[in-house]
Computed example of a mutant assay.
Amino acid sequence: MPPTNTDQPLNITVAPEVHDLVPGFVPLVVEARGLSNGPSDERSSALLDDAVRRLTERLAGRAPHEDPHLAAWRDAYTAFGAKPSRTRNSAEALARRALADGGLPRINLLVDLYNAVSVAHLVPVGGEDTDHILGGMRLVRAGGDEKFETAAGGEPVVEHPEAGEVVWQDDAGVTCRRWNWRQGVRTRLTEDSVNAVFLLERLAPMPLDELHTAAGELAEGLRLLSPAAEVTVREAD
Results as ranks from 00 to 15, higher is better:
Met137Tyr: 00
Glu31Gln: 05
Leu224Glu: 09
Pro227Glu: 03
Thr56Cys: 10
Leu225Trp: 00
Glu191Met: 14
Glu230Val: 13
Asp7Cys: 08
Thr213Asp: 11
Arg43Asn: 01
Pro23Tyr: 14
Glu235Ile: 06
Leu199Thr: 09
Thr130Phe: 00
Pro23Ile: 11
Gly38Asn: 13
Leu59Asp: 04
Leu222Val: 10
Val197Met: 09
Glu159Asp: 11
Leu94Lys: 06
Glu155Val: 01
Thr232Met: 01
Cys176Thr: 11
Arg178Phe: 03
His65Ala: 14
Val233Pro: 09
Pro205Tyr: 09
Gly102Cys: 08
Gln183Ala: 12
Val231Lys: 02
Ala93Lys: 11
Val22His: 08
Phe25Met: 06
Gly164Phe: 09
Glu230Lys: 11
Leu55Trp: 00
Val158Ser: 00
Arg186Thr: 13
Met206Ala: 07
Arg88Val: 09
Pro9Ile: 02
Ser90Val: 07
Leu70Pro: 05
Pro105Met: 03
Glu42Leu: 09
Ala51Gly: 01
Arg62Asp: 12
Glu17Ile: 05
Asp192Asn: 15
Leu28Lys: 06
Gly38Glu: 06
Gly164Arg: 09
Val194Ser: 15
Lys83His: 14
Phe198Thr: 01
Ser40Phe: 11
Val125Trp: 07
Arg106Pro: 02
Glu201Val: 08
Pro207Asn: 09
Thr190Asn: 12
His65Ser: 10
His19Asn: 08
Phe198Asn: 06
Arg177Lys: 01
